[in-house]
């Protein structure tokens, strides 16, 4: 089995309106279900992390800018690592990602094994 990095991209520039506790709970549920199903299939390598929306980018010649990329709306909001036999299988797993239901997208990349 190979490992795959799933990167969740989403719109980080539009400020989110305050959510009610019930909305927050409703938002958390599909993530728990999705992660739960990956774990149940024993395909989870690392749950990964959520990332802050802002950061810095170091350009050529050491120029540091506020990033990630101010000119585009989407940034990586988090990542997870799964294992699968093929990128197609990893893609199938990623199709259940709840970010897809809120306007985000998932990029799937095979991790090159070094051993």
């Amino acid at each position: 089995m190979k490992e795959f990095l799933l990167m969740f991209r989403m719109d980080v520039t539009t400020p989110q309106p305050p959510q009610s506790p019930e909305q927050l709970q409703a938002m958390m549920k599909p993530w728990q279900d999705w992660m739960g199903s990956i774990t149940a299939q024993d395909k989870l390598v690392s749950a990964g992390n959520r990332l802050e929306p802002d950061g810095k980018v170091i350009q050529q010649k050491g120029i540091v800018t506020n990033g990630p990329y101010v000119e585009i709306k989407e940034a990586i909001g988090g990542y997870t690592i799964v294992k699968a036999d093929s990128i197609d299988e990893a893609t199938e797993l990623a199709k259940g990602c709840p970010i897809l239901f809120v306007g985000g997208n998932v990029e799937i990349r095979a991790i090159i094994p070094m051993d």
């Binding site: 305050p18 959510q19 506790p21 927050l24 958390m28 993530w31 728990q32 749950a47 990964g48 988090g78």
Partner: peptide
């Protein structure tokens, strides 16, 4: 302050969805 506290609950929900 309301933004900070609202954001705290948002981030917590997102993180717990991903990491348990």
């Amino acid at each position: 302050v309301e933004d900070i506290v609202g954001g705290t609950f948002l981030l917590a929900s997102e993180t717990w969805g991903l990491k348990g």
